[in-house]
């Protein structure tokens, strides 16, 4: 069984985000980039499945510039077998990303397509579901547990108010939530080995898709700032302030 794992290169989650002075976006120059943490969880899950003998091949896919190749390489160091880089210099919106991935799905015919539930840059939480619709495949989103059960997968999903378990037919799309697993660190020998693994490069133009953006970004701003607060000495003073100043207690 083959898995296609989709990974996105994003600003590292530890970096403090700075909005550009001209309000066109956020500062990405000289900023540390990493694999989207939710996608790292997706790679880890695929590697675990391979270790359990459920999978025999893991293909790591990314869409972006040459540097997204490094993100694929970290997926290969974690245990991916080979990579595909779809090259584009444009920032594709989720619908277009899903269309591009659907072309790779057609070509590779994976039984499992797994990716993060969202990327921590634009926080859209769309690509997996859109891909599922385009490929007419079932989806199991926000997965916190994935188990093979006969010919199907039983997936526990994190939903508001608790957990939901569904059973999905293969091929299927799984999007990962935070508590599915803890991604491993790639060992030095595996990082060295990953350098020998193959990454196929495909130009995005070769698919003949219309990938024009549908959303026009007017401006990107800092969030409204909070006014500095005060320190209170004890519980009485706190309750007093909440009643008289904030008026949130009666």
């Amino acid at each position: 069984m083959k898995a296609l794992v989709c990974v996105k290169r994003v600003i590292d989650y530890n970096v403090k985000i700075r909005v550009k002075a001209d309000k066109t976006g956020v500062e990405t120059e000289n900023v540390k980039m990493s694999m989207n943490p939710f996608d790292e969880i997706a790679v880890e899950e695929a590697v675990k499945m391979k270790e359990k003998g459920i999978l025999n091949e893991i293909v790591v896919l990314s869409i972006g510039s040459e540097s997204s190749g490094e993100t694929i390489r970290s997926g290969l160091a974690m245990g991916g077998d080979r990579g595909i880089l779809v090259k584009t210099t444009n920032d594709l919106e989720p619908l277009n990303v899903a269309k591009v991935i659907s072309k790779i799905v057609e070509k590779e015919n994976p039984e499992i397509i797994i990716m993060g539930k969202q990327a921590i840059d634009d926080d859209s939480n769309q690509t997996g579901q859109m891909l599922a619709q385009i490929c007419k495949l079932p989806q199991a989103t926000f997965a916190s547990k994935v188990e093979k059960n006969g010919e199907r997968f039983e997936v526990t999903r994190e939903i508001d108010g608790g957990l939901e378990t569904i059973s999905v037919e293969l091929p299927c799309i799984i999007t990962t939530d935070l508590r599915l697993n803890e991604p491993r660190y790639a060992s030095l020998p595996n990082i060295m080995k990953a350098k020998q693994k193959k990454i196929e490069q495909i130009d995005v133009g070769s698919f003949g898709l219309n990938l024009e953006n549908r959303l026009e970004i007017i401006e990107v701003n800092d969030p409204p700032e909070r006014k500095p607060g005060i320190m209170v000495q004890d519980v009485e003073e706190l309750i007093g302030k909440l009643k008289s100043e904030a008026k949130v207690l009666s």
Partner: peptide, 23 residues
């Protein structure tokens, strides 16, 4: 924009071939 809406709406968006606006 709850897990219900997030799970469902991108499928509708892809069906209509439009780019969803999240959250």
């Amino acid at each position: 924009s709850t897990t219900f809406g997030k799970n469902l709406l991108p499928r509708i968006s892809a069906h209509l071939d439009v780019q969803q606006i999240s959250d």
